[in-house]
């Protein structure tokens, strides 16, 4: 089953074409990286997948729901985390999680909050205000919010941005464990190529609003004849080198 199916997805702002008729699928249970330089169209694509932005053209199906007609059913089983969208700073961590637990109609909410807090090392922070936390603590709280409804699809915008290596590794390890335990699908936008190599089954490379390449990280590295994904990213971003072989057909299984 596909967790995401996007067909001919286009977003135009006046004369600017932000996303240019992209099509892709994300198999259920896969972790997919959405990569590209600044202005490549990643954020616009994620905003359309979340229903925050209406596409100029194209269709999106999330877990079988047509986002144009049935987006609230899809939104109930997905969630989102971004360091650029804050949680109310004056509310405590527990209050923030309670708010979103109610919005997502989470059963046995207090137990869920307690369990998430224990798993993400937040128990000591539950009574602290969100605005008083460090960047690493805020990231873990945002992750707890994104997981409050046990989402079947998790959209992550730069999940480890501004984190130190220790905290970044904690978050990546946690995401790996969550995926293994829940079978959830993840789509993450990231500028950390090592993170993408570690977490993702498939990479969608975007440039100027188009998907210019797609493959597993290992297959992309091999096709471009490089040592790591960062070099592949630079090849594509700077038009330095074309792939040594054409891309394989479609999305690999997770």
């Amino acid at each position: 089953m596909e967790a995401i199916r996007a067909e001919g997805l286009t977003k135009r702002y006046g004369s600017t074409l932000a996303v240019d008729a992209i099509s892709f699928t994300v198999p259920a249970g896969a972790t997919v990286g959405l990569l590209g330089g600044n202005g490549a169209g990643k954020t616009t694509t994620i905003a359309m997948l979340l229903g925050l932005l209406v596409p100029t053209a194209g269709r999106i199906h999330i877990l079988g729901h047509d986002m144009a007609r049935d987006r609230f059913a899809a939104l109930a089983v997905m969630n989102f985390s971004s360091p650029y969208v804050a949680l109310p700073a004056r509310l405590t961590v527990a209050e923030n999680l309670r708010v979103y637990g109610h919005l997502y109609d989470v059963p046995r909410l207090e137990t869920r909050i307690r369990d998430l807090a224990a798993e993400l090392d937040l128990t000591a922070l539950l009574r602290r205000r969100a605005g008083e936390l460090s960047a690493g603590q805020k990231t873990r709280v945002a992750l707890a919010k994104a997981l409050i409804n046990r989402p079947r699809l998790l959209l992550l915008d730069e999940p480890t941005a501004s984190l130190d290596p220790d905290m970044g590794d904690f978050v990546r390890s946690w995401l790996e464990r969550y995926r293994a335990a829940s079978g959830a699908t993840m789509l993450l936008a990231s500028h950390n190529m090592a993170e993408v190599e570690r977490l993702c089954d498939l990479v969608l490379m975007m440039k100027q609003g188009r998907i210019v390449d797609r493959e597993s990280p290992a297959a992309l590295i091999a096709r471009y004849g490089r040592q790591d994904l960062e070099e592949v990213f630079l090849d594509i971003a700077r038009n330095r080198r074309a792939a040594l072989a054409p891309a394989a057909a479609e999305t690999p299984a997770p």
């Binding site: 609230f72 109930a76 969630n79 989102f80 971004s82 969208v85 109310p88 979103y100």
Partner: peptide, 18 residues
């Protein structure tokens, strides 16, 4: 406006809240 000031609208509008 409280939702705007707290930069929280993005989370609110991607929840199932109609």
């Amino acid at each position: 406006l409280e939702e705007i000031w707290s930069r929280n609208l993005g989370h609110v509008f991607v929840s199932p809240l109609r």
